[in-house]
């Protein structure tokens, strides 16, 4: 096989790992609370600024900056739920989605006020790793592994803890669970905080690869939503697999044409998939 194509495929899989985290977070929130957070990519953006600020301005060690970023964005997710989503829980879905759409402007505006519109770089770079003929970016590989670990941790939590089981149960049947003694309000809060935390983790992995600026959410937000829908909204495993599929499509599309066209191809693929499987690729 052409080594460049192989490299593109490997990079696509690595990219998929980074897409996977926000997809899992969105799916978790949608599955449990039944609301699409349109501003999810902006939560990631805030997390990226958080790491950048702590590392380059406040002089924190990078690992500590990462550790602080997770709960900060987690709290932001909780705040988003309590302030914006909760009063609208009984409203039609369109109002809920648009309210979180309004938060996009709030977060972008806050970021601009605090840090201006400049591109901010962390300035951390790891040497590429050479395997056979192909080069793999060290930062991307580390990010990929971290994304898998994050996904694994989430799975373990959902599968083996009491709260995790309650979360899965609520996602399956919203009406019955309150009768079983589960307080949905608390579960919503937990899910929102975890959803935010996953955005924080995604932020840590992205900030080492990309420069952060107030509009960066727009560059990966749309594709995150598309991956979620492609895997089936609320379907964690479907979203996880679709993330890798989309990563490879984007990356190999970039190999054959160019980066912009690769996104056009990816979005077109998404629309075609929706026509073939209107409830997502992995709908039961």
């Amino acid at each position: 096989m052409d080594p460049f194509l192989l490299e593109a495929i490997v990079n696509g899989i690595l990219l998929g790992g980074v897409f996977a985290l926000p997809v899992l977070g969105l799916n978790l929130v949608f599955g449990v609370v039944d609301v699409v957070w349109l501003c999810y990519a902006e939560l990631v953006m805030v997390g990226m600024y958080c790491v950048w600020f702590l590392y380059t301005q406040a002089g924190f060690p990078l690992a500590l900056a990462f550790l602080v970023c997770l709960p900060v964005v987690g709290l932001l997710g909780l705040l988003l739920h309590q302030v914006v989503v909760r009063p609208l829980l009984n409203s039609p879905p369109i109002t809920q989605v648009l309210a979180t759409g309004g938060v996009i402007f709030v977060l972008q505006g806050s970021a601009m006020l605090a840090f201006g519109t400049d591109f901010r770089s962390l300035g951390v770079e790891m040497p590429p790793i050479e395997v056979e003929d192909i080069f793999i970016s060290g930062t991307k590989l580390v990010a990929f592994v971290a994304a898998l670990l994050g996904a694994g941790a989430l799975w373990t939590f959902l599968k083996f803890t009491y709260v995790g089981t309650a979360i899965r149960a609520i996602a399956r049947d919203r009406e019955v669970m309150p009768l079983m003694g589960v307080d949905p309000k608390r579960i919503y809060m937990v899910a929102s905080a975890i959803g935010g935390g996953l955005a924080g983790l995604a932020a840590c992995l992205l900030v080492v690869q990309l420069d952060v600026h107030p509009y960066i959410g727009l560059s990966f937000g749309p594709i995150t939503f598309m991956i979620c829908v492609m895997g089936g909204l609320g379907n964690m495993l479907g979203g996880f697999l679709a993330a890798f599929l989309m990563g490879v499509i984007v990356s190999t599309g970039g190999f054959w044409w160019n980066t912009e066209m690769s996104y056009v191809v990816a979005f077109a693929c998404f629309i075609v998939v929706m026509f073939a499987r209107p409830r997502g690729l992995f709908a039961r």
């Binding site: 648009l98 309210a99 977060l107 972008q108 601009m112």
Partner: peptide
């Protein structure tokens, strides 16, 4: 003067409106 203040207030008002 305050780049970002406009979208911030715009966004807050939108959310309040919807609520």
């Amino acid at each position: 003067a305050f780049i970002g203040a406009a979208p911030l207030i715009y966004g807050i008002l939108l959310v309040l409106f919807i609520q």
